[in-house]
Design a protein around this nucleic acid. Sequence first.
RNA 1: AAAGUGAAACGGGUGAUCGCGGCGAGGCCGAGGAAAGUCCGGACUCCAUGGGCGAGGAUGCUGGGUAACACCCAGGGGGAGAGAUCCCCGGUAAGGGCUAUAGAGAAGCAAACCGCCUGCGGGCAAGGGUGGAAAGGCGAGGUAAGAGCUCACCAGCUGUCGGGCGACCGGCAGGCUUGGCAACCCCCAUCCGGAGCAAGUCCAAGCAGAAAGGGUUUGAGGACGCCCACCGAAUCCCUUUCGGGUAGGAUGCUGGAGGGUUAUGGUAACAUAACCCCGAGAUAGAUGAUCACGCGAACAGGAUCCGGCUUACAGUUUCACUUUCCCU
RNA 2: GCGCCCGUGGCUCAACGGAUAGAGCAUCGGAUUUCGGCUCCGAGGGUUGCGGGUUCAAAUCCUGCCGGGCGCA
Length: 137
Amino acid sequence: MKSEDQSLKKTEIIRRKADFDRVFKKGKSIVDPFFVALFVQNSLPFSRIGVSVKRKFGKATLRNRLRRLVKEVYRTGKEDFPEGYDILFIARKDLSDLFRRREVSFFEIQRVLRRIANKIGEMPDEKDCTFPDRFLP
RNA sequence: AAAGUGAAACGGGUGAUCGCGGCGAGGCCGAGGAAAGUCCGGACUCCAUGGGCGAGGAUGCUGGGUAACACCCAGGGGGAGAGAUCCCCGGUAAGGGCUAUAGAGAAGCAAACCGCCUGCGGGCAAGGGUGGAAAGGCGAGGUAAGAGCUCACCAGCUGUCGGGCGACCGGCAGGCUUGGCAACCCCCAUCCGGAGCAAGUCCAAGCAGAAAGGGUUUGAGGACGCCCACCGAAUCCCUUUCGGGUAGGAUGCUGGAGGGUUAUGGUAACAUAACCCCGAGAUAGAUGAUCACGCGAACAGGAUCCGGCUUACAGUUUCACUUUCCCU
RNA sequence: GCGCCCGUGGCUCAACGGAUAGAGCAUCGGAUUUCGGCUCCGAGGGUUGCGGGUUCAAAUCCUGCCGGGCGCA
């Protein structure tokens, strides 16, 4: 997959409850001031993302905006993210505070998510399982 | 022109690039006035069905509108304001309860602290004082001093006559008078069966219930309780306990008490008719991002659907009206 | 989508509609002690979550918001 493909289909978003449960239960975590990222391998030739936003984060418009920004960052920069993972971003309180003051732009979310994506790629103990999964349907 | 009152409308434009959801699939459509809070009212679905009583709840001036409402329109009374206008609304001579402190006395044959009068037995409720409230108000007559004791006016009550569908309004007469709180219980009138789209229906997958106890054709049980009718079960019903599985898909799911224009009826809310229009259907949940145009800034994102109410809201526009000032 | 509860000093809780909203812990000051603790005495600290209403009078009653918690499907 090359960077020309900037579409984001339904299948590239974590939707089923079982998938969410799997990430929550088995996923490894990366902690950032704005997000906690959980990720796990998904036996697919591409990655899927999900966003978890608590009701306490803000009102519905704010929660929707965060989801859209995260999806937009992933869509326009898939080459920055490793393939074959389910990645779940959980918004933290510091981000909520900034959101309420409207001090968060697309580029800041992009910067933060790229930083997290690089860390996922660097995780050493995951490499063992990466290759066999590529031959699965 | 200034100050103000009341209605109503708009509320993120244009272009480029990359994207998202739906469907009859190169096309078209794709969040709001509040989508919100979930405070009311319905539609719809299930509880087998019908009726009565009760409990509980809601509403509360009158008439009308509506599917219905706690909403809307018109009217009545009271209050605030200079006015446009705004706010409030059943019953206290059915009963019970509460009215602290202060005060002589706080709810009915009232009471006498200071006081007024006196024939020293007593009489009085005008003045002072207390209080949110002192048993009609105010003025005159009257008297030893006083009092609806008498009279005029005003308020209230009862009766009566007239107007209005009615709430009420107006006139006359009477006897002289009844504190406040029902957003305390209560009374009266009217209305309401219960649960909710995670309702409900179908398909697929999966596990483990022929588990244990109790009940029942002498009627268990049947969605607030009771009663009547009715329905109703022997591997197949009801109930308690323990244990196990699923969290996928379809349907409900959007064309409706729907909008717009015109005409008619009505003071109006609204109703009726004709013609035209079709405007989301997701399910970790679709509208976004970047750039340019000087800035792009409110509250805020559908989840079964409608009618209201309430709350939030940058900026802007329109209409009607009031008061004051100036000019013609 | 429904149903229910709570909000009072820094914390945990009281208060038939009636006086200056109380109690314990905590805080501060003093006494006691060589010092500290314990103990004793005293003091400060409240928009009763916010707004409007009923009432002579509201933490209490009614109502609209705000915040928090619980239960059912």
